[in-house]
């Protein structure tokens, strides 16, 4: 087996995207059925956990709290081309989670990614929509404390921009009186 074929098959086995064929050699069959392979996949998972817990803390904590972390991260690992550069992993993860089918997960991830970009100097203004009043949830994620009570349902937006003091502002879009229903981040 030449090096290219060897490496492509191992990539597929690590990502769980390669099905072993009867005519594959004994080594590939051996790897495919080894405990080592399962543990190698787990190893990839744990490395992502270590990095994302630090670099995408809001979304990581929310997924964990909702017991969605393992599934979300497994899908991310299988589908995304994860760079070894640590600082690229959080943006890629948050981009993927921004499309999560759970709307609140998507909102948290979109907000965290927007805030990250703005803090790094991006000039664009980002608008993230929410189905709940987000302040209480975000506060509980930042402090890693339980959410106090049930968040009020409604239509909210967070404006994320370097032109906003502390970079973000929560706005209720159900009332014209924004002054009474806004919260600026700190």
């Amino acid at each position: 087996m030449d090096l290219a074929v060897h490496q492509r098959k191992l990539l597929g086995l690590i990502r769980d995207t390669y099905q072993v064929h009867p005519d594959d050699d004994a080594y590939i069959h051996g790897v495919a059925h080894s405990k080592d392979l399962k543990e190698a996949r787990r190893n990839v998972f744990m490395w992502r956990i270590f990095v994302l817990e630090r670099t995408a803390p809001l979304t990581f904590t929310y997924l964990k709290r909702r017991h969605l972390l393992e599934a979300a991260l497994s899908t991310f690992i299988q589908q995304e081309n994860i760079s070894p550069f640590r600082e690229t992993q959080a943006p890629a993860f948050l981009e993927a989670m921004g499309h999560h089918t759970d709307r609140l997960v998507a909102s948290v991830a979109q907000f965290e990614l927007a805030l990250m970009k703005v803090k790094q100097g991006a000039p664009e203004t980002h608008v993230v929509t929410w189905d709940i009043e987000p302040h209480a949830l975000l506060k509980s994620l930042v402090t890693d404390l339980p959410l106090e009570g049930v968040p009020r349902e409604g239509n909210y937006q967070i404006i994320v921009s370097r032109d906003v003091p502390s970079h973000f502002q929560i706005v209720s879009i159900e009332t014209a009186d924004e002054n009474r229903n806004t919260y600026r981040g700190d």
Partner: peptide, 16 residues
């Protein structure tokens, strides 16, 4: 190696 055909393994594998 950490990548194959530009796809990152997410881990480092030893050379044969």
């Amino acid at each position: 190696y950490t990548k194959v055909d530009g796809e990152h393994l997410g881990i480092m594998l030893a050379m044969p």
